[in-house]
Design a binder for these strands. Structure first.
Length: 699
DNA sequence: GATCCTCGAGTTCT
DNA sequence: CTCGAGGATC
């Protein structure tokens, strides 16, 4: 395409002060080619070979030269990507070759693929012993279908799909998408007289997040998901707005065409489109028969969440164009292709009610009760709304239709309200003034997000949560004391505080629901067993505000006895590393409260005890000085077990990846942690690698 | 005073 | 897993 002897194809040279028209024409052509090449390398191949500064220099030179010679501005010049006045509306475009819709299967991966393969074979009159059909399997991108028309190699029109027969002319907006070439790269060969490239305009997830951050910062409306964001951006009447939106493109097929020799298979068509300079997704694969389709479907399902963009399924097409023609169409759906969707990660549902829950600290948490909806593989009925501010921000109301998401993570989330579908007569949510459980006043301090019930231990909800925390696995580890039992013990006023638990006998438990001989005996044994604990667990179990597991360990290490901790004043506490004003005050006032001192005394009297606190050995194990973050499910160890092994080897485990993280230990189905680790270039280990490090220290 | 790093607390479903 | 906030650090 380019001739090195002309020079400066990839790098800018200082422009001559003024060029003769003939020289200018040549230089302009060279600049246009160079910029097109760099755009292609950057936006399509993801492998730029010049710095942004060098690119900008080329671009500025082109702008200047065009300003000096306005007569030489070509429609395919990169400077023409942005421009033109806002349109009053989009003109209609008739698709000479209709843009098809593909029939969608939503069955399981096996039955959907087999049914499709069987239909194709039947239509083609194949017998059982005939060889398997070759298919091309592709991703189904979650974006907007468009058709791009090139005449003599130059982009002349871009159109939306519309109803398949007629779409909208969005040429100005299409031109702003840098991944779309303004001129086909056909090498030395003449370009086709006419060719329509079809594909999907979409937005990468990371670009979507960044765009929303920007919109938020500018006080403008944010988008619900990458798809809506791409759709909204493409339908701007003012293309200068579209130009600022980070849109991407994947080509997947052809429309009208003249003056070009069609290859024999769909796969070859895609290869040719790629050579023209379009992005074509790399995951496409030629597979054989139903088994090949199923394998493809499963592979993609596994890596779907790690893709940088959203897909809503996969598409299978008969690879041979001759066979495609034989198969033909039923109404407007081709018989030779089928889309196979994955279960939706987002669904619409309605808010039936907004409950308010009371947590251990008295914090009030609003929770949306939803009409059950199947999303991301489970049926969701609840979704937390976190706090009052969050509800205000999203303006979620009872009766609203909302979008629920259960993406890479597990916990359902209300993404947004569909305002258009809001029924009449709804009213904005208000935090109750009184605790819904105990009726005490609700307090929300200035500048704090949460609202709190002031009832403290008068509030049964807080008492229940405190007991559950006390009995928890990481605290006193009382097996069998779950929420159902605690609920009854508190409601029947058999238990006021943790100390009362140890006064109960097997007979007391027998009166409870779901409690017979065996369970009651087990629970008594569990209570007995829990009496031998450790100081740090005991401190954690008390449920002092701002004192979690880590702080409880620090305190146990530092004071080495409960009496010393209880006697500590504020100044002593603040002197400890990791303890500031807020925590010191919380700890001190907890132990100053006579009722708390009574409970602690009663617990000790009941026989709770712990071995002397060992002085933390300043040993250096194989993992000394290393910090780990865990994500996903490990093949043989539980996460707790892995954490224990790392700590035993003198390593540290934290919850989130930062610059200080030495390694990320990843198992099956890793979450967003893995992506973050990759972006920060933190090395990633699997379980086996970790065990090797513990066995023999890394050199 | 701003920024980074951790910890605490709350949450869903099988 | 995510958010908010406490604590440390520059």
């Amino acid at each position: 395409m380019q001739n090195p002897s002309q020079g400066s194809l990839f790098f800018s040279e200082p422009p001559a002060p003024s060029l003769a028209p003939a020289d200018a024409r040549e230089r302009l052509a060279a600049l246009r080619d160079a910029i097109a090449t760099h755009d292609h390398r950057y936006y399509v191949l993801d492998a730029p070979i010049v710095s942004d500064a060098e690119y900008d220099a080329l671009y500025r030179e082109l702008q200047q030269l065009e300003a000096q010679h306005p007569g030489l501005i070509a429609p395919d010049s990169p400077t023409q990507r942005v421009g033109g006045r806002p349109l009053p509306e989009f003109p209609a475009v008739r698709h000479t070759v209709p843009m098809l819709s593909i029939r969608t299967e939503t069955d399981t991966e096996a039955s959907g693929a087999r049914a499709f393969d069987a239909r194709v074979r039947r239509e083609l009159g194949l017998e059982e012993n005939d060889p398997p059909i070759a298919y091309l399997a592709e991703l189904k991108f979650d974006g907007l279908a468009v058709s791009l028309r090139y005449e003599n190699g130059v982009l002349v029109q871009g159109a939306t799909r519309g109803d398949g027969e007629t779409g909208e002319n969005i040429t100005q907006n299409i031109r702003t998408i840098r991944a779309i070439p303004l001129r086909l790269n056909t090498g030395d060969a003449p370009p086709p007289a006419t060719i329509e490239i079809r594909g999907e305009v979409y937005m990468r997830r990371a670009d979507f997040e960044k765009l929303n951050d920007r919109q938020r910062a500018a006080g403008e409306k944010t988008f619900v998901n990458p798809r809506n964001s791409a759709a909204g951006s493409l339908r701007q009447l003012d293309s200068s707005i579209t130009a600022k939106r980070p849109l991407s493109f994947f080509a997947y097929g052809l429309g009208e065409m003249a003056g070009w020799k069609l290859p024999e298979t769909h796969g070859d068509v895609l290869d040719a489109i790629e050579r023209f300079g379009f992005p074509v997704d790399k995951h496409r694969q030629r597979v054989l028969g139903a088994d090949g389709l199923i394998a493809f479907h499963q592979n993609i399902a596994a890596l779907k969440d790690t893709l940088p963009f959203d897909i809503d399924g996969v598409v299978y097409k008969v690879d041979s164009l001759v066979l495609q023609q034989q198969l033909g169409f039923v109404t407007r759906e081709p018989r030779w292709a089928v889309a196979h969707k994955y279960p939706a990660q987002e669904q619409f549902t309605t808010v039936q009610q907004i409950d308010v829950q009371v947590g251990r600290t008295g914090k009030l948490t609003p929770v949306a009760k939803l009409s059950p909806v199947f999303v991301g593989g489970v049926t969701v009925t609840n979704a937390t709304l976190h706090n009052e501010d969050e509800i205000k921000r999203k303006d979620v109301r009872v009766g609203d239709t909302v979008i629920v998401r259960r993406a890479g993570d597990v916990i359902p989330e209300i993404v947004a309200v569909v305002i258009e579908r809001r029924p009449e007569g709804t009213h904005a949510f208000e935090m109750p003034r009184q605790c819904p459980v105990c009726g005490s006043a609700v307090i929300r301090e200035e500048g704090v997000v949460g609202a709190y019930c002031s009832g403290e231990l008068f509030c049964p909800a807080q008492r229940k949560q405190a007991l559950l925390h006390f009995a928890g696995r990481r605290a006193m580890d009382i097996e069998g004391l779950g929420d159902k039992i605690v609920e009854q013990l508190v409601d029947k006023e058999m238990v006021q505080s943790a100390a009362d638990l140890y006064r109960l006998t097997q007979n007391d438990f027998l009166g409870l629901d779901r409690m017979a001989e065996k369970s009651a005996a087990n629970l008594c044994a569990a209570l007995e067993k829990s009496k031998l604990t450790t100081l740090d667990r005991f401190i954690f179990a008390l449920g002092i505000r701002h004192v979690g597991e880590a702080t409880a360990r620090d305190l146990a290490q530092h004071f080495r006895s409960l009496d010393a901790l209880m006697a500590a004043d504020g100044a002593t506490l603040v002197a400890i590393h990791e303890i500031g004003d807020v925590m010191a005050e919380s700890i001190h006032s907890f132990f100053s409260e006579p009722r708390n001192r009574d409970i602690i005394a009663a617990l000790c009297a009941a026989g709770i005890h712990w071995p002397d606190v060992a002085v933390a050995a300043t040993t250096s194990g194989p993992l000394t000085g290393l910090t780990f973050v865990l994500t996903g499910t490990l093949p043989t160890m539980s996460r707790d077990e892995a954490t224990r092994r790392i700590i035993e080897a003198d390593g540290k485990v934290t919850g989130s990846v930062s610059k200080k993280t030495s390694y990320v230990l990843a198992g099956e189905v890793p979450g967003s942690t893995l992506a973050k680790a990759q972006s920060l270039k933190v090395p990633i280990l699997d379980e086996a690698a970790l065990l090797r490090m513990i066995e023999k220290p890394a050199s």
